[in-house]
Design a protein around this nucleic acid. Sequence first.
DNA 1: TTAATTTACGAAACCGGTTTCGGCAAGAGA
DNA 2: TCTCTTGCCGAAACCGGTTTCGTAAATTAA
Lengths: 379, 379
Amino acid sequence: MAKKATRRRGAAADRGSKRTTIDDVAALSGLTKGTVSRALNGYPDISPPTRVKVEKAARILDYSPLSQAQAIKTGIVRSIGFVLQTYAHDAHRPFLASFLSALSETATDEGWTLTLATSDSDDGTIRTLEWLVKERKADGFILPRTLTRDPRIDFLRGEDVPFVLFGRTSDSTGCAWYDILGELAMEGAVQRLFGLGHRRIAFVNGGINFHYSRLRLRGYREGLGKCGIRFDEALVRSGVLTAPEGAAAARSLLSLRSPPTAFVFAVDSAALGLYRLAEGLGLTIGKEISVVSYDGIPEGALVRPPLTTYSVDRKKAGARLAKLLINRIRGESPENLREFERAVLVERESDGSVTLDSEQLAARLRQAVLRQPSKKEKN
Amino acid sequence: MAKKATRRRGAAADRGSKRTTIDDVAALSGLTKGTVSRALNGYPDISPPTRVKVEKAARILDYSPLSQAQAIKTGIVRSIGFVLQTYAHDAHRPFLASFLSALSETATDEGWTLTLATSDSDDGTIRTLEWLVKERKADGFILPRTLTRDPRIDFLRGEDVPFVLFGRTSDSTGCAWYDILGELAMEGAVQRLFGLGHRRIAFVNGGINFHYSRLRLRGYREGLGKCGIRFDEALVRSGVLTAPEGAAAARSLLSLRSPPTAFVFAVDSAALGLYRLAEGLGLTIGKEISVVSYDGIPEGALVRPPLTTYSVDRKKAGARLAKLLINRIRGESPENLREFERAVLVERESDGSVTLDSEQLAARLRQAVLRQPSKKEKN
DNA sequence: TTAATTTACGAAACCGGTTTCGGCAAGAGA
DNA sequence: TCTCTTGCCGAAACCGGTTTCGTAAATTAA
């Protein structure tokens, strides 16, 4: 057993002996550790001179409290939690890096850390949350890609654990959030295309359960309304996230007797599918068909022609979300922690004045091999 | 003060009252908490029946110890640390997402978490590490993008904190690592291009301080040697990470009286600069000039022609690194924790049989506007 | 059968903090 | 001058665990 004990206190424990503890500060300042603690935590029953003395001693010894020692009593570890859903589609991947770095950057600035864990299924996400809450690895959570009806929210609400949404949801009681007004972007996209002369404008929406899809569809319809175009169910597809799915959706839309001359995509990565399809059909994007999308993924600048899209500042989103969550954990009520931001239009070359109307496009397409999928389209 | 106290114990503390603690387990099993603790931690002085009794009670109560309560005594929080260098160039960005998710996935599987913090300068990185070590937010660290002489390593070695490198370094005492044999890839790239008939093969290296640059240059020379080509200093550039830098390096190489007909890039994102340059000059990549690169960033598949590159499995790297670090923290000696992997060649279309020799290429280039930078080349 | 070991657990100290409680001393009010 | 506050700090309990230490009971050895 002695052997085991020795093994146990390895490097970590040895290092521990060098830490300056609150007792050291107490000794140097000639006070008790209780007083030091209160002084450092801003309790009012500490006289100014004493407070100064303590602060000075703390500074001299370069003291900072051990967060987990505090946590055991206060229940706060100064860490924000984030569950990476590794099963989620790559559509949401490209942002992750800048988003996470912004999250953790703001956290770091506040002296907090970011605690990351993963899950490989929806159930797994809840289990991971349960685990993190139970072991108190994080004080609260950022929930990305919120669903209209989101089990994560139900769980955290039930456990009374603070959280902030990146997005919105149907039942907003007790929810704090930061969100981009995607609906305004979709509305703007329609109006922009209308301004370019397009009259049949399709909408390819994202995952049906994500709440943003609901909102973006609404924005699309709003845009149509403002342009005096009748909403046509036939021009809408949904549940489209990936490039292959995007290609399939576009193919089906172009197969209509009266095909759209312009596309609004709710998700950039799906819009890239249109590029593959167009290449296969010999269609020129930005001339024969137009597309405006949403997200602002880097690939959008690389494809030819570069993609016109509403870009989301993920960096800022991460920063604000971290801040909101920390305030939430500190006790601010969720109703006061709701922020909106707008996506900004990046005008590139994938949309242009209409050159063919729907009928002409249909004729043009009849010559192309619509029913015979080319190879290029895949991959 | 009473008010303050009430505010302090918010949701977190309330939740705390519901946690099952080790005392609950002790009560249910009719033992003391010390015994329960020893039973659960595998101490030998516990009789089999007692151990079973404790385990059963723990299972019934769904008990799991509070990691920070353990940490205060053991010094281990079951978390691996990672410092995101936000100032580091985007060259390394695209990988981050899958890398981090792999790291945290393996950590999660082991019941550990990933603790993320950021820094915005080299000094800041050390300060962040100091902070994390001091507050004991993590038990050890993964160090990506290691330098030949790396202050992070010096610091952690000095503090006796466990770490694992993603890469290698000059002084490997006490270092555990996982690394990709980039030198073999560079060697292979040269041989491949030689096989396609190229005789003047340039090498555009990455950041000079990164240890991998040293190794990749070595691999390039090794490749030349095996092909019987004399090493020519004039054909080498280094410190090239971004697309603009890559474009500049390629321009300077093509300006030589005897320009290279093929390029080996140590970094994909720099290789993309060659595409911009070629577009500006009207050169056809894969025909008039060839390029083989290294990294395997997703954009490589999108550009035209798609980029032939040695791809690194970042997912696997993350998984292995997490595992290695956890073993390191558990006491395994660093010498036993060193692993290598190979990059795998993804054959695409950016390299092809030589169509112009160096002289012909030079002539071809003289017609192009070499000295007058076109606009397309930028951005 | 008795002495010498083991075995297995309880008791208590400890880790590094926070928070409650009580009381002394100084200042205010009568 | 004497009580009543108030301000300020020490003492001690507490948080949820781990680890040391000591010892009664069970084994083994003599």
